[in-house]
Nucleic acid binder design. Structure first.
Length: 223
DNA sequence: GCCCAGGTGGGTA
DNA sequence: TACCCACATGGG
C-alpha cells in the first residue's frame, strides 16, 4: 500500500491543485511571515505584513533598527504582538550578524547547521525553522504543523503523542527528498486542514480524505 | 459570548 | 519528563 504521505499528497493535489506557496515577494518576507503566523490566522498576518511594507520595514537592517514600539504597533493585527516584534528583531539581528542581512547567502551552509542555528534563536521553534528553510531558502525541510498532526493521528497513521520530530521523521521516511513536493504537501495540508480538520469540529464528510478514515466513520478527536 | 488560528517558551512537581 | 500557562488579535 502506498504510504499515507504519498497518498495524501496525490489526493490533495488532484483535488485542490498546486498552491503556489509561500505568498511573499522576497525570502525575507517569508521569514517575517513565518514568525507572525505562529498560532495566528493568515488574514491577520497579511495586514501586519502590509503595514510593515508601508513603513518600508520589510528589510533586515531597517527592521532591526526600528524602535520596538513602532514594530509592535505595526504587527498588532497578527496577535502576540509584543512577543512577535521581539522575535522579528532577534531574527533580523541574527541575519545581520550571519550574512549581513543577505538572506540568499544562508544557502551556503548545510541544512542541518542552519536549522540548529535557527532553533537557537529565541522564538524560533521547529515549525518556524522548517518553514524558513523550505519556503524562504528552498531547502528540503519538511514542515509539520497542527493540521498534519491531527490528520495523521485521526487517521491512525501515527500513534499519539505524535511529537514534531516523530511525525517529521515518519513523513521523511515516506517521501522522496524533493523541495517542490515538500512545498506543496504542507500547503495542501494547511488548506484542507483549515476547511475540514479543525480542533473540535470535524467536518470530515466533505473532506477529500474522508474515505480513508478508519471504518469510514467521522474523525475521532485526538484521544 | 465562544471557539479558533500555519507555535513557542517558561515555570513547577 | 510531563503538564500547565501566558502570549493577543480578528473572523466565524
Amino acid at each position: 500500500m502506498e504510504s499515507p504521505a504519498r497518498h495524501v499528497y496525490r489526493r490533495l493535489h488532484a483535488a485542490l491543485g498546486p498552491q503556489g506557496w509561500w505568498p511573499a515577494e522576497t525570502p525575507f518576507e517569508v521569514m517575517v511571515g513565518a514568525v507572525l503566523v505562529q498560532n495566528a490566522a493568515w488574514t491577520n498576518v497579511e495586514r501586519a505584513i502590509a503595514r510593515l511594507r508601508e513603513a518600508d520595514l520589510l528589510e533586515p537592517r531597517r527592521l532591526a533598527r526600528a524602535r520596538r514600539e513602532t514594530v509592535e504597533q505595526l504587527v498588532r493585527s497578527a496577535g502576540y504582538y509584543r512577543q512577535k516584534s521581539r522575535r522579528l528583531q532577534i531574527l533580523c539581528e541574527w541575519l545581520l550578524a550571519r550574512c549581513d542581512g543577505q538572506v540568499d547567502r544562508l544557502r551556503d551552509a548545510p541544512l542541518g547547521r542552519l536549522r540548529a542555528e535557527l532553533l537557537g534563536l529565541h522564538g524560533i521553534g521547529p515549525e518556524t525553522a522548517d518553514s524558513i528553510l523550505l519556503y524562504a531558502l528552498e531547502l528540503p525541510a519538511l514542515v509539520v504543523d497542527a493540521y498534519t498532526r491531527r490528520i495523521w493521528v485521526r487517521h491512525g497513521w501515527i500513534a499519539p503523542p505524535a511529537d514534531y520530530h516523530a511525525l517529521q521523521r515518519r513523513l521523511a521516511d515516506d517521501l522522496p527528498v524533493d523541495v517542490a513536493l515538500y512545498n506543496e504537501l504542507h500547503a495542501l495540508v494547511v488548506q484542507v486542514g483549515k476547511d475540514y480538520c479543525k480542533k473540535r469540529r470535524p467536518a470530515c464528510d466533505a473532506c477529500p480524505l474522508a474515505d480513508l478514515l478508519p471504518d469510514g466513520g467521522p474523525c475521532s478527536d485526538e484521544r
